[in-house]
Design a protein around this nucleic acid. Structure first.
Lengths: 193, 193
DNA sequence: TGTTATGGACCGGCTGGACGGTTTGGAATA
DNA sequence: TATTCCAAACCGTCCAGCCGGTCCATAACA
């Protein structure tokens, strides 16, 4: 049963397969819905058997948790990279916006959240932790806090709507909308009240 | 066999039971998550048997659809009532805000959406139809359209976040935030650009 | 009024199938 | 050989939907 494992082994293919599985699960949720995300289907989509899948993720919950942390880590990484090249006030908010809506859609976070909601809302605990971090950073972003929250939550609103398959804006409107949000991150606070 | 029935009979209890069932289902989703919304549990919560439930709703999908339409109808009703007593520009947007966040929380729409996502995203079709109506009304609300969409989607963002159990704002901040949104519905458009 | 007929409302046990997770066995690798 | 990795069969559970049956309200008739 070996309580401690050597850790230094054939890590390479292991992590690769893990991300392959996570990507397959994400794709299934986005294309077919959370109800269709069964272990058997995910395994098939990942080119693996169910037994193999469970070798890498001990349970379905573990897989969903991995989906969530993968999405959040990727988001975190992109935003911090973007902030580094933009030291002006509102930089975090702008990174939040552009990372939420990249050129080519990649709703990994949305799929993970949907999967979590469908099976057990407790799985979203990691997301809750991250959410408070975002709020804290917004307070330090050099803008009026409430103004920043309006923008941030507008981003969330568009993101959630699209995640559940309900585009609330026409394509040209959407582009204008995002430009408007970016512009709002440059409006000084006192314009507001 | 009398093809025509008098119609004036015992209609009363039928619809009442239906709403009782819908309310029970909504409560279960909010309190225990969509995965726990089984027909047996809903029936028990409604004080009815599973067979009785299936007598009123032919399938689980039908029940979820009823939840969605009930939530949307209630929302529609409240906003239109509110608009009637507020003829100034931005009246629809203000109604949208205050109806989304009433004094006492009643996340019937959120529960219905979560149940829909968990079982089959196609069930949200009604919601999509309503969504376009909201956009159309925003265009006629007497405000700059993009400005109005920022506010509307900020409402959605807060609503969705809270619906999945992630309050992104502290309680005092939340109150300030809603006041800010209301105030923004009174900002004339040209302030923006 | 008493009796029987009819049909809708409702119950709850049952089942077929799906799904998460386990086990077993074997192939690849070291 | 030992260990890691993975496939496939299998198991136990759970749930949606079905179905036979009961109850009750009204109606038709006498």
């Amino acid at each position: 049963m070996m309580a401690e494992k050597p850790v230094r082994k054939r890590r390479k293919s292991g992590d690769e397969i893990r991300t392959t599985i996570v990507n397959a699960a994400t794709r299934i949720v986005m294309e077919q819905g959370a109800a269709r995300m069964t272990l058997a289907d995910v395994a098939k989509a990942a080119g693996i058997s169910k037994g193999g899948l469970l070798h890498y993720f001990a349970s379905k919950d573990a897989l969903i948790r991995a989906m969530i942390t993968a999405g959040l880590d990727s988001f975190e990484e992109k935003t911090t990279a973007m902030i580094a090249s933009d030291p002006t006030p509102g930089s975090y908010l702008r990174a939040y916006i552009t990372t939420s809506f990249p050129a080519e859609r990649a709703d990994d976070i949305a799929a993970a959240m949907i999967a979590g909601i469908a099976t057990d809302p407790d799985l979203l605990a990691d997301y809750a932790v991250e959410s408070t971090k975002w709020s804290d950073r917004l307070r330090d972003d050099g803008l009026d806090y409430l103004h920043a929250e309006v923008i941030r939550l507008a981003v969330d609103g568009l993101y959630f709507n699209e995640a559940i398959g309900l585009p609330p804006l026409s394509l040209p409107d959407r582009a204008e909308f995002l430009k408007r949000l970016i512009a709002m991150t440059r409006v000084s606070a006192e314009v507001q009240r």
